[in-house]
């Protein structure tokens, strides 16, 4: 493992300054480190400096007017243990629970998962379906953008040099579901993950699919076809067929393209039925 210098700034300003102090490919940011350290071990990245966020006051969770704001360095296990999360955002609870193992979730964070932008992230599809936003802070001040705009492609985000993810905001409680298929329940990467949510205010459905490169995607057209409430079985079957056909998929070492297409349709059908079964979707 190549040696690096670890710096542990005490304030947000110091953190931004220590990120700017190194030019070139730039320093790495560490929150939980469960993904970054693997990349360093494998030589996929070799930062000379690693900036730790552990002293920043971002291990927070707040519900205000139905919106959830999660500080970027809050361990996923703490998010999972929030007493209101399973009721208000069941799909988000399911996606957090799907990450790694208990021991991994004691260190891994929501901010780290977004910042690392893994193509098979389990959290990003659910955040997409919930219309979540990220709050960033950097040398030029703060800005807020949608998770969809934040994620560019595999391992690429729109974070500017010196910028940090401060928090993630989910605007409203939504009946939702997150389903995955993988070889092992824990510490494995989903072959396909499907996130579904119903917005009571729009009203309408959101669908996102993850588990394949280059990044999790929203299926906006398919979601629109489900209508503004409980879809008929016929509508749902048609949506599942379309999702299966239209989503951009490929084969890799984890699953073939054909298997993934079948999974998308199957998991989407189950996820929509699970959301309907919550009783919170109007007919």
């Amino acid at each position: 493992m190549p040696p690096f210098e670890l710096v542990t700034p005490a304030t947000v300003d110091e953190a931004i300054a220590s990120l700017r102090a190194i030019a070139g490919s730039g320093p790495a940011v560490i929150a939980g480190g469960t993904d970054l350290l693997l990349d360093i071990d494998d030589g996929r990245t070799a930062p000379g400096r690693v900036v730790s966020l552990r002293r920043l006051p971002w291990r927070t969770l707040d519900w205000t007017d139905g919106a959830l704001t999660v500080g970027s360095t809050l361990p996923l296990r703490s998010l999972e243990d929030d007493p209101d999360l399973p009721r208000r955002l069941p799909g988000l609870w399911q996606s957090v629970h799907a990450v790694g193992s208990v021991a991994l979730r004691h260190r891994a964070t929501l901010g780290g998962n977004l910042g690392r932008a893994a193509p098979a992230s389990d959290l990003i599809p659910m955040l997409l379906a919930l219309d979540a936003e990220v709050d960033l802070v950097g040398p030029d001040g703060s800005r807020r953008l949608s998770v969809d705009a934040f994620i560019r492609s595999s391992r690429r985000t729109t974070l500017a040099p010196g910028e940090l993810i401060r928090s993630v905001r989910v605007p409203e409680s939504r009946p939702s579901a997150f389903l995955w298929q993988r070889v092992r329940p824990a510490n494995d990467i989903s072959q396909i993950a499907v996130a579904v949510a119903f917005s009571p205010t729009r009203p309408g459905w959101s669908i996102a699919v993850g588990g394949m490169p280059p990044r999790p995607v929203l299926l906006t057209d398919v979601a629109r076809r489900l209508g503004h409430g409980r879809p008929s079985e016929e509508l749902l079957r048609d949506a599942c067929d379309r999702a299966s056909r239209e989503v951009g998929l490929a084969s890799d070492q984890r699953a073939s393209e054909e298997y993934r297409r079948r999974l998308v349709g199957t998991l989407l059908g189950r996820a929509v039925r699970a959301v309907v079964a919550s009783g919170e979707v109007p007919s």
Binding site: L6, T8, T34, L38, R54, H106
Partner: peptide, 27 residues
Amino acid sequence: CRTGDCGACTVLVDGKSTLSCLTLTRE
């Protein structure tokens, strides 16, 4: 495994199970 897959390196940090292979001591 040293990749966070097997759990053999699990220790408690401040009472919470932690994968010691994926944790910097300084952290």
